[in-house]
C-alpha cells in the first residue's frame, strides 16, 4: 500500500499523515505540489494546514497546483483520495466534492476532541467501521462550517454520501452537522476532523483514526484480489 501525501507550501499535517500511513502498515510517499507526478501511488492524502497561507479562500490556490491537476484526473478514474481539513477545503474548491467550507459560526479557531457518528461505510475510507459507529476524532480549524445549497444537501443525504456527522455538539455550524462527505463513487472522501492524529495513544485521546487506513487497506486488498482474478 503506497500512499501519497501531498505537501503544499503551508501544509502542516503532512508529517502526521505520513506517520499514520507508516504506523498502519503502508508506505508513505511524499508528493510535492509543484510536481505533476503521482509516482504511481495507490491512494493520495491531501493533509491539513494552510496551503499557500489560505489568505484567499481556503484551498482556492492549492486547487490550481500542478499536482492537483493529476489528483483530479486520477480521482475521476477511481484513485482513492482523502482530504483532511485543508485537504477537504481543497477537494471542494477542486469540485471533486460539492459544497464549501466557510468560517465557523463561533468565529474562532477551535481545537477539540470531537464525537462523530459514522453514517456511511460504503466508501474506500470508511468501510472498516460499522454503520452508526460512534468515534472520537480531533478537530482543529477556523473554517469548517460546511455549506451547500438545499438541493445538494438533499442529494448527499439521499445518496448516503454524508460519511461522518458531528454528534454531542456541532462545533462549527455545519449544515446537518456534516463533518465529512464522499463523491458518488465513494473513492473521494473529505472531512474536517483529523484521523491522522488519532493513531497513537500517547499523543491522542483515541486511536479511532486507524479505521480510515484499515478501510483503505481492505479496499486495496479487495481490488488486488479482483484484478488478479482471485488467485492471491
Amino acid at each position: 500500500m503506497r500512499v501519497g501525501v501531498v505537501t503544499f507550501p503551508g501544509s502542516l499535517d503532512d508529517v502526521d499523515a505520513r506517520r499514520a500511513v507508516t504506523l498502519t502498515g503502508g508506505e508513505a510517499v511524499s508528493l510535492w505540489h509543484a510536481s505533476d507526478s503521482l509516482q504511481g501511488v495507490d491512494a493520495v492524502i491531501l493533509p491539513g494546514g494552510f496551503s499557500y497561507g489560505d489568505y484567499l479562500r481556503c484551498g482556492a490556490i492549492a486547487r490550481f497546483s500542478p499536482v492537483m491537476a493529476e489528483v483530479i484526473k486520477a480521482a475521476h478514474a477511481g484513485l482513492p483520495v482523502l482530504g483532511i481539513c485543508n485537504g477537504f477545503q481543497v477537494l471542494c474548491e477542486a469540485h471533486l466534492l460539492p459544497g464549501a467550507l466557510i468560517r465557523s459560526d463561533r468565529r474562532t479557531f477551535y481545537c477539540k476532541d470531537q464525537d462523530l457518528r459514522v453514517e456511511s461505510t460504503d466508501t474506500v475510507w470508511s468501510n472498516a467501521f460499522t454503520p452508526g459507529q460512534q468515534i472520537n476524532i480531533i478537530i482543529k480549524h477556523g473554517e469548517g462550517n460546511y455549506q451547500a445549497d438545499a438541493e445538494t444537501v438533499k442529494m448527499l443525504e439521499d445518496e448516503n454520501r454524508v460519511v461522518f456527522r458531528y454528534i454531542n455538539g456541532n462545533p462549527n455550524g455545519s449544515l446537518h452537522d456534516i463533518a465529512g462527505i464522499t463523491n458518488e463513487r465513494g473513492n473521494v472522501v473529505g472531512l474536517m476532523p483529523h484521523p491522522e492524529h488519532n493513531v497513537d495513544p500517547v499523543t491522542a485521546p483515541t486511536r479511532d483514526g486507524i479505521g480510515f487506513f484499515e478501510s483503505l487497506a481492505r479496499y486495496l486488498g479487495a481490488l488486488a484480489s479482483r484484478t488478479q482474478g482471485g488467485t492471491a
Binding site: V15, D16, F109, C111, K112, K140, H197, A204
Partner: peptide, 14 residues
Amino acid sequence: VTDQYDRYVRGNTA
C-alpha cells in the same frame, strides 16, 4: 483560550 490553539499538530504532544 487554549482551544484556540492547535495542540496536536506534528503528532508528538504527550
